[in-house]
Amino acid sequence: MATPRISFEFFPPQSLEASFKLWDTVRVLAPLKPEFVSVTYGAGGTTRELTHDAVALIHKQYKLKVAAHLTCVNSSRDEIMTIAEGYAAVGVTDIVALRGDAPNGADAFTATEDGFANSIELIETLADSGKFNIRVGAYPEPHPDSANAAADVDWLKRKIDAGATSAITQFFFEPDTFFRFRDACDKAGITAPIIPGIMPITSWTGLKKFAGSCGTTLPAWLDDAFTKAIRDKRTDLLATAVCTELCSDLIDGGVEDLHFYTLNRPELTRDVCHALGVTPDASLQNVA
């Protein structure tokens, strides 16, 4: 089995305790030499300043390539591009360009006055600046706002045509889900890399709730397995095995890159990477 290239997603801290968790996560995973790491926005763009600070510090202190999430929520075009220019000013030129979820309390996304109506407008503007490498989201299962799976492929094609250079998928739990999507994208003429998004299961209860909100299918066999593992207090062992097997099947199917949604809990992601043959760089293990 070939050793994959890897990348990680972190989220910015909103408390002192969460700050310790973020920096411990970066410390544990940086030695695995990720191709890049990404830092999310909170729901409705609520962590804008925290995201900027985390991006800048990770880039400076760990010398990692950082992709900053940027959304269209609750900001004008000028405000969003000012944020993007701020990233460029500190040497961060990778952006994950997203429409973003509806703000808390809202039923659906609504563009701000003078704001971007959707991710394609944001991508086009970032691309026109000539300063950024633009990554986007992709959905191997229908997005909750999408009419069907074909519409998601068409929308991804439009995002790539607008200037995006690669896509990261929503998480999924069966390799055929990704392979079917990859084949559909290929038929649609999408040639940009599509990186599978991998969610190590750190909390089965929390994951079930999250999956329901974003349209991810949870196979019956997986629910049954975790029900038994919770009873036997063996969830960590099962989670490592399930995630490693999914990644191995993807690699066997030709996947060369994997993007892990760490949830700022590094141990399971680290263990899966080790099982896949991704070894730490000792020179990065002592970075404070």
Results as ranks from 00 to 15, higher is better:
residue 98 L to W: 15
residue 131 K to C: 05
residue 6 I to P: 00
residue 24 D to R: 09
residue 183 D to G: 12
residue 76 S to R: 12
residue 226 F to W: 09
residue 66 V to W: 01
residue 192 A to K: 01
residue 271 D to F: 09
residue 63 K to F: 05
residue 3 T to I: 10
residue 235 T to W: 08
residue 132 F to P: 01
residue 251 I to C: 01
residue 128 D to Y: 14
residue 101 D to N: 04
residue 128 D to K: 06
residue 148 N to E: 10
residue 279 T to G: 14
residue 137 G to T: 07
residue 265 R to W: 00
residue 91 G to R: 04
residue 33 K to F: 05
residue 197 G to Q: 04
residue 257 D to W: 11
residue 42 G to M: 13
residue 236 D to V: 12
residue 197 G to W: 01
residue 194 I to D: 03
residue 181 F to I: 02
residue 23 W to Y: 14
residue 202 T to W: 01
residue 280 P to W: 08
residue 70 L to H: 06
residue 167 A to D: 04
residue 163 G to N: 05
residue 112 T to N: 15
residue 95 I to W: 00
residue 127 A to T: 01
residue 101 D to H: 07
residue 74 N to M: 11
residue 209 K to H: 11
residue 36 F to V: 01
residue 32 L to D: 01
residue 28 V to F: 03
residue 173 F to K: 08
residue 203 S to E: 15
residue 101 D to Y: 04
residue 181 F to A: 09
residue 186 D to K: 09
residue 133 N to F: 06
residue 100 G to R: 06
residue 126 L to S: 06
residue 283 S to A: 15
residue 256 E to M: 10
residue 176 D to K: 11
residue 64 L to M: 08
residue 191 T to S: 13
residue 159 K to C: 07
residue 216 T to Y: 12
residue 147 A to D: 08
residue 188 A to P: 07
residue 220 A to S: 10
residue 254 G to Y: 08
residue 117 A to I: 10
residue 288 A to S: 14
residue 23 W to E: 10
residue 163 G to A: 14
residue 105 G to W: 12
residue 14 Q to K: 10
residue 265 R to D: 06
residue 105 G to L: 08
residue 266 P to Y: 06
residue 141 E to P: 03
residue 155 W to P: 00
residue 44 G to R: 03
residue 2 A to S: 13
residue 207 L to K: 01
residue 55 V to F: 00
residue 277 G to E: 13
residue 144 P to Q: 11
residue 172 F to P: 00
residue 225 A to L: 10
residue 224 D to T: 15
residue 98 L to K: 02
residue 47 T to G: 03
residue 41 Y to K: 06
residue 54 A to L: 13
residue 20 F to M: 12
residue 38 S to D: 03
residue 236 D to H: 15
residue 251 I to Y: 00
residue 93 T to L: 03
residue 88 A to I: 06
residue 141 E to R: 04
residue 225 A to V: 12
residue 146 S to V: 03
residue 125 T to G: 08
residue 14 Q to T: 12
residue 28 V to N: 04
residue 246 L to F: 01
residue 65 K to C: 03
residue 116 F to I: 08
residue 107 D to R: 14
residue 63 K to R: 15
residue 33 K to C: 04
residue 162 A to V: 11
residue 265 R to C: 15
